[in-house]
Design a protein around this nucleic acid. Structure first.
Lengths: 218, 218
DNA sequence: CTGGATCCCTCACGATACTG
DNA sequence: CAGTATCGTGAGGGATCCAG
């Protein structure tokens, strides 16, 4: 029982039938950083009902985007992973995340921020032309989530978890975004070479879309 | 009243709140080729209920993705157009369309194919590395829809409608896709330089994803 | 004829509870 | 831990109707 169908012979329509259902792309976002168990996915997408997660995983599996794997003994537990085909969505989701970040504004009451959101976000707003030949490793800590980014040769690599040997550790809350849009924050703690923070703010600068700052009601 | 919200502070989640509702991205697909009237949109997305189209347009407008314009006298009619911000989705939708095309298979009974779907599809599966320094203009006719593609300097430009001076006109049905995946069709009529068709099939080659040919039931 | 608004029905989603 | 079962609600689907 595949997704409802748009009645169009169109690559985009077909793509949306595969991954365009509600929560679909967010499940894929979680899996972009590696295989995850059902419970991990539940935690990463803390508002997703378990039956919806279950349904999405089944559909995505049927559509060849996600694979269900059973880990070798003794754990024997189940993990979900992207297929090669599913992993090809990486670039699309990064660009979409970058696009969305430009109009996101401040977090709303009760918004959660997950590691994978942070990882995808950084990749989405990365500006290679601003990185130049900088070579540095950043560790980011927002609340209790941790990720690290290595910039080198105009390329970026971001992963979950702490860095082995960071040049700069940035401990912040979501007001970090304000800095990236050209604003200011004084709740950010730096450990390491503080000069690297200015580079960070250039490399991950967000061009806020006008008129989309916070509220959306007319 | 914005779209339902995911409760996550994440660029991707926010993007999906803006354009991720059902039909949302397809409406944007229609507008990528220029401003359209309500009725044109209805025709391009022939299965969309008018109330849903109406709702999407309102939301997209509220979110700063689409603009509602009233044409100057004497027509005085209403058109919808992408904002600058909305137009930035171009690249994302092209990539997503290309991704979807790889697993699309043959059209189902009753599937429509619209001009904008063809335009986006061609752009999505374009392979610059296969174009080399070829310089050529193709005109495509599938059923009663017409588009043209100009390839030059490794770049591609596709538009609706006939070409002014095509080097090759390809008149086909949806079996054209079979050729692009390495198969064969004998319902394609060529007018112009037939040698250019081989180049066409390379430049727009589709790497079919295994196991996704036609059916999806296990 | 365009540009929608309205009504009703159905099913996907969302919340919660429960099981192997 | 890894999901399934149940059930209420509201968004989507389809048809029709109405104003400019």
């Amino acid at each position: 029982m595949p997704a409802r169908n748009y009645g169009e012979y169109c690559g985009l329509a077909h793509a949306l039938e595969l991954v365009g259902e509600r929560w679909g792309m967010l499940v894929i976002r979680e899996l972009l950083t590696g295989p995850k168990r059902f419970t991990d996915l539940s935690r990463g997408l803390h508002r997703i009902p378990s039956n919806v997660l279950s349904a999405r995983l089944k559909e995505l599996e049927q559509h060849g985007v996600v694979e269900r794997r059973i880990l070798p003994r003794p754990s024997g537990s189940v993990v979900y992973a992207l297929t090669d085909y599913g992993r090809e969505l990486d670039e699309v989701l990064i660009k979409l995340a970058g696009w969305g970040a430009r109009s996101a504004g401040e977090p709303r009451e009760g918004d959660a921020v997950s590691v994978t959101a942070l990882v995808l976000g950084l990749r989405g707003i990365f500006r290679p032309e601003a990185a130049g030949d900088l070579q540095a490793t950043y560790e980011l800590r927002i609340g209790d989530i941790v990720a690290h980014a290595r910039v080198a040769g105009g390329e970026l690599e971001v992963s979950e978890g702490p860095a082995a040997d960071p040049d700069l550790t940035i401990e912040a809350d979501t007001s970090l975004r304000r800095v990236l849009t050209g604003g200011h924050s004084d709740t950010i703690a730096l450990t390491g070479d503080p000069a690297l923070f200015e580079r960070f703010a250039e490399i991950f600068r967000i061009e806020q879309v006008p008129g989309t700052a916070v509220s959306e009601e007319a």
